[in-house]
Amino acid sequence: MTATGDTGTAEPVCGEVRTCLLQTSLSLTASAAEELLRLREDERVRLSERPNLHAVSPDVLTGVDCRLPTGSGARVRAIGTVAARAVLTEGRVLQATAYFRAAGAGPEQRQPWGHYLVRPGVLEPFGGLPVRAVADGILAGTRQAGELDLGAVSERLLTAVLRHQLLDQRPPFKSRRTRLRWVALRTRDGQAPSIRRFTLAADGLRTVELRVPEEIAPAAVAGLCEDLALHDWLLTTLVRMVERSRPGSADGYAVVTALRPAVDHLLHLWMPRARVAGALSPLWEVLEREPGFTRQWQTLVQRIRDQLALQAIPLPREALTAR
């Protein structure tokens, strides 16, 4: 199934990842994480404990036969399977990714399902694929009825996992889900991977467009985007938590209560590139320069520690009341 010649450059990988706090009071242990993510009996959960606890479910496939969203309004029908997987980091943050590789061209008529089943996670268009239009469509904010909705596939997986009996539904703090839509176009021989755009929209939607060499497997691209989404979620969540703690307000006790979950559950999760394929890890450096993920994270962490330190110092009454 390796594409040859120029057609290989036209086979984008597209996906959407949703990230949320696992709805449980305590982080899950490795064995519980394994049980949670056992989505299929015939395949194992991939578990790794260094440098952090990371569990990846087997891929589950969803058969689709529908139009791909396009930026140009062109109608592109595609058939095949979308792969989806759930990932749990440190037993605390849950992600679900739905992704596929689009073949550059496909047969003009529908094949028996066996044809598509031996190509897991691949969608074949009827005829040629307008790569740019499809990339724009996937990254766009809205979906028309009848178009492929990767978000719905990842959402379905995420909610199915969140319904699991292992979870007590008593999370230590309230938080919002984020969505990251991504498209990776393939680069020609020898070109280095790059990030073309990374945007944040108000309602928790992020979009990323990448260029990656064609020898990199779709799952590795998905892994990079999960890493980006995880750290973007951490930042978003911590910013909101600091904001809600209302530092500077008169009630020091409330500030401590509001910030404590960050110390208990979030601060140790920051580990960019922990799971990113070597060839893709330079992409992180770009984001570290601009907008500077780790810089913002460090500032927040320092702010939290300063707040907690301030509250720990028993000040004379006057100093606390003088405002």
């Binding site: 709805q23 909610t159 969140l162 539904q169 309230k174 938080s175 889900r177």
Partner: peptide, 13 residues
């Protein structure tokens, strides 16, 4: 309905 309530409960006080 259950999924929605779980999801909103995770996000809202």
């Amino acid at each position: 309905c259950v999924d929605l309530l779980l999801r909103l409960n995770a996000e809202f006080d």
